Amino acid sequence: MKAHPMVGDSLVAALLGIIDLLLFVGRQAGDPAFAPPAWYVTAPLMIGAVVPLAFRRRYPIVVAYVVLAVSIPHSWFEIGFAGLVGFGIALYTLVAYVNRRHALLYVVANVVVSAVQLPMQLDGTAAMVAGVVTGVGVTAFCWVLGEFVGARRAYQAEVEARLHLLETERDQQATIAVAAERARIARELHDVVAHAVSVIVVQADGAAYAVRSQPELTERAIKTISATGREALTELRRLLGVLRSERADEERTPQPGTRSLAELAERFRAVGLPVRLEVVGAIDDLPAGVGLGIYRIVQEALTNCLKHAGPGASAVVRVERRADKVELTVLDDGVTGSRALVGVSGGNGLIGMRERAHVFGGTLQAGPHPGGGWRVRAVLPVGSG
């Protein structure tokens, strides 16, 4: 019925028409003084009083005034009570489905019609009072019922609108979360692959130059390439395991953090980049996310130094813990020309470092140092407690 309201309205109209017909036939048989008009007048009036009610929700205003117009001769010939009931149903529909203004105009129109018709049709004060009381009662009941149903419909519409809004917000949040996760995975992949490939390329170039003159140096370079490749494969397997697994509590390989900075510096020294690590304050108790961010920023900065600083360059990594923040500086003394172009074009490495800093509400600056070389400086808030 809710999916097809016209079916229910048609059944109501048919039931009302049948009852009206039965009352008409019963009165005609039991009251010899009752003299109705001919059937070709009575039948259209009985049909016209109930058929429009089947369309009351689709055309509520038109149906209301059609019912009012038909109820005038229907009541005048005393065919039945379908005119009064039809008025009540039409008034209820206007209040519940249209608005109070149209409903009030409809009531005024009916009052005008009744004020003209009742004195002409009814004899005696008692009959007049009974007719007025009946009309007022039907009007009040149908108006109150329409207000109740209209309020429920408005509440249901508001609830549905809110649910739709919540579903839209949920879909948008899911889209944002997916985009953020993709960006995080992209940063992790870039950090792992870029670092490993840079080290492998540098060591492979060195091995190619020294393969005949310095076999021991070539052997060490090949071992470094092997170790770096294995480490990169381990990191990639960890990332792929996170993506494939549906279990959030599954045991994972520990993420690197500030405790791994010394090992990271040692690996870069082994591939030919002298790195001096300076740590001021306690950094081992930093949150895991902040520690990973610091590690990845240092890793990317040293990778860029290894790729672009030129031969003979060295780097200084300084990590200083203050009360409510961590200041990180990576400074090298290499050439700056090629890296200046990278900084202008917005390379993925610089973008990734800035994104990592912004995730924690921090800032990152990268560019040529006034005293020579290249400097990366990041400030990450960590709170005082």
Rank of each mutant, 00 (worst) to 15 (best):
M6K: 12
M6G: 05
V7H: 04
G8I: 00
L11D: 06
L11A: 12
L11G: 14
V12D: 06
V12T: 15
A14Q: 06
L15T: 13
L15H: 11
D20E: 12
L23Y: 05
D31H: 08
P32E: 12
A35H: 08
P36N: 05
A38W: 02
A38T: 05
V41I: 12
V41T: 10
A43R: 05
P44Y: 04
G48C: 11
V51A: 10
P52V: 03
F55P: 03
P60V: 01
V62D: 08
A64M: 02
Y65S: 09
E78L: 08
I79F: 06
I79E: 04
G80H: 10
F87L: 08
F87Q: 08
L91F: 07
L94T: 02
V98T: 05
N99D: 15
H102V: 05
A103F: 12
A103K: 08
L105F: 15
V112H: 11
V113F: 14
P119S: 11
L122W: 00
G124N: 07
T125S: 06
V129N: 08
A130S: 14
G131M: 10
V136P: 03
F141L: 15
W143Q: 13
V144P: 02
L145F: 13
F148E: 09
F148Q: 09
G150L: 09
R152W: 03
Q156D: 14
A161C: 05
L166M: 14
T168I: 11
A179P: 14
A179D: 11
A180Y: 03
R182D: 03
A186G: 13
L189N: 01
A194E: 02
I200T: 01
Q203L: 07
A207I: 08
A207V: 10
A210R: 01
R212I: 10
R212F: 10
P215M: 07
L217T: 12
I222T: 06
K223Q: 09
I225E: 04
R230K: 05
R230Q: 06
E231N: 10
L239T: 13
L243V: 11
R247Q: 09
A248M: 07
T253W: 05
Q255H: 14
T258W: 00
R259W: 03
S260C: 03
L261N: 00
E263R: 14
E266L: 01
F268Y: 13
R269D: 13
A270Q: 14
L273T: 04
P274G: 02
P274Q: 06
V275Y: 03
L277V: 06
V280M: 07
V280D: 14
G291P: 02
G291S: 08
I297E: 01
V298R: 04
Q299I: 00
T303G: 06
L306Q: 00
K307I: 02
A309M: 02
A309C: 00
A313I: 00
V316R: 05
R318K: 12
R322V: 00
R322D: 03
D324W: 07
L328G: 01
D332A: 01
G334A: 04
G334S: 04
V342Q: 11
V342T: 15
G343L: 13
V344P: 01
G346R: 14
G346S: 15
I351Q: 12
G352Y: 03
R356Y: 12
F360N: 13
Q365E: 15
P370V: 11
G372L: 06
G372V: 07
A378Q: 10
L380Y: 07
P381M: 10
G383A: 10
